[in-house]
Design a protein around this nucleic acid. Structure first.
Length: 444
RNA sequence: GUGGCUGUAGCUCAGUUGGUUAGAGCACCGGAUUGUGAUUCCGGGGGUCGCGGGUUCGAGUCCCGUUAGCCACCCCA
């Protein structure tokens, strides 16, 4: 009987494990630099948690089953519902703003394809308890920094920024209620993927005869790329009274957001693009997605404001904004750009052991250096000298230390710098101090 | 869930119109090599040719099914 890895799941041999560790380290370092705190939640959750957030349709996309206690459970497909529950449960005692992040594996029962697997890692970051656009700016700055940390620049990726609130003004002007608006946003979300004819057809089912006129408005809005044009378009809308003030207020929020991003040095990555509205209906304000600069591929990261969700899932209402970044699309991009760290570091020291008699001293020294935190390797069986050096070379050792009868007889610590090819004797005094100076300064 | 393409050693691949015991390079292990590493030489392990069925005297090769991978659609939290 033979077994294979389940579809859409990956095994991590040391090389890919090293790459994954590198990605996690950079994500974590970025989050820490913005003073986000790490949290975690169960991988297995009540199925109901996801149905409550996303509706019954979600069940078909989940790994779910009934546990032996008769509970309907699911492997987490995303982090946000768990986060909302955690925060909601302690809402009154948590210092705000709450800035939290998580790096964890998520599971979705979907057909694997380019940039999408069934098990993948996500970096989630959220700011809760602050409704102002400064929070959106802080979060977006973290998102951009998290990508820059890999050496990616403006020529590699961009962040497409949009706003569902602005869309709602437009839709209200068309006389649409909440349900109709949600429907139209769903159509706009697919604008890029569908033909103009198909989009028109879909709009007509909601708007009837005004669909064609509305379509031209949509095309004008989606073409806007800079803030002055955005202001011009929305202040010129034929809308009166309190709505006009609301639009003014909304544009002021935009100003706060864009100014903060410019001041943080992130402005160059941001591109206004109201074509982004994001699929599910719970987003309430700014929404954004990061893409490869060429526009190819799936989104590198996506997020937005969700001011109503915590109240719905956690009981206690709380404004929130967050993003998620996956390891699969990012890994593909890093690979393509040649920015993927490939190998795990080699050992600091490999011991070359002459024979059974010399092994005792080598083991004692290895234990000493290992206790001090150095990476030390030695052969587990008796092997010819030449082979040991060859092996040390192949394993990428920084230094080889020779344990032969001559060295032990004369009481020296003979160290060979594998890269330089130099070899020197050192007195057998403080090995840890010697190791430290060798690794810092090398061998003269 | 739907469709297209592809499955021969760990990896990259060869394998003639269907014909005996399925090969190469790389990688791995051992040796030449009992005190010095990237070269060289020799040897070795590793395959139910993705799996199942069919056609045939005979199938890695042809046909059907299935499974997995890749890609696209649906969906994308």
């Amino acid at each position: 009987m033979s077994f294979e890895t389940l579809p859409g799941f990956r095994a991590f041999y040391p090389e890919s494990s090293a790459r994954r560790a590198d990605i996690f380290e950079k994500w974590r370092a970025a989050a820490h630099s913005f003073n986000f705190l790490e949290y975690d939640a169960p991988v297995l959750e009540p199925l109901e948690l996801y149905i409550e957030k996303s509706g019954e349709e979600i069940v078909g996309q989940l790994f779910h089953f009934e546990d032996r206690g008769g509970r309907a459970v699911a492997l987490r497909p995303e982090m946000t519902p768990s986060l909302a529950r955690l925060v909601g449960a302690k809402a009154n005692s948590l210092k705000r703003p709450i800035k939290w992040f998580n790096i964890g594996e998520h599971y979705r029962y979907e057909r694997p394809q380019k940039g999408r697997l069934r098990a993948f890692y996500q970096f989630n970051a959220d700011i809760l308890g602050e409704s102002g656009a400064s929070a959106d700016a802080e979060l977006i700055a973290l998102l951009i920094q998290s990508l820059k940390a890999f050496g990616l620049g403006v020529e590699d990726f961009k962040l497409r920024l949009s706003d569902r609130d602005l869309w709602l003004f437009l839709l209200a002007a068309e006389g649409l209620d909440a349900a109709g608006s949600a429907q139209v946003l769903g159509i706009i979300d697919k604008l890029e993927r569908n033909s103009r004819e198909k989009t028109l057809e879909q709009l007509a089912t909601v708007l009837g005869e005004s669909a064609a006129v509305f379509m031209t408005k949509v095309e004008a809005v989606v073409a806007i790329r800079d803030f002055p044009a955005l202001v011009e378009y929305f202040t010129a809308l034929p809308i009166e009274g309190t709505q006009t003030e609301a639009i003014e207020a909304r544009l002021a929020e935009w100003r706060v957001l864009l100014t903060a991003l410019d001041n943080s040095g992130m402005g160059e990555f941001v591109e206004i693009d109201l074509g982004i509205v994001r699929g599910l209906a719970y987003y309430t304000g700014f929404v954004f997605e990061a893409f490869e600069a060429s526009g190819e591929g799936r989104a590198l990261a996506g997020g937005g404001r969700y001011d109503d969700l915590v109240g719905k899932l956690g009981g206690q209402a709380m404004p929130a904004v967050g993003f998620a970044m996956g390891d699969v699309t990012l890994g593909d991009l890093l690979e393509k750009k040649g920015l993927m760290e490939v190998a795990e570091a080699g050992p600091d020291f490999i011991f070359i052991i002459g024979g059974v008699a010399e092994r005792a001293q080598a083991l004692a020294d290895a234990a000493c250096l290992r206790a001090a935190g150095y990476r030390v390797e030695y052969p587990l069986k008796e092997v010819a000298f030449g082979k040991q050096f060859k092996d040390a070379n192949q394993r990428g050792a920084r230094f080889a230390v020779i344990y032969g009868s001559e060295e032990l007889a004369s009481g020296v610590f003979k160290v060979r710098d594998m890269a330089a090819g130099t070899e020197r004797d050192y007195p057998r005094t403080d090995l840890v101090a010697l190791a430290e100076s060798l690794l810092e300064e090398g061998q003269d």
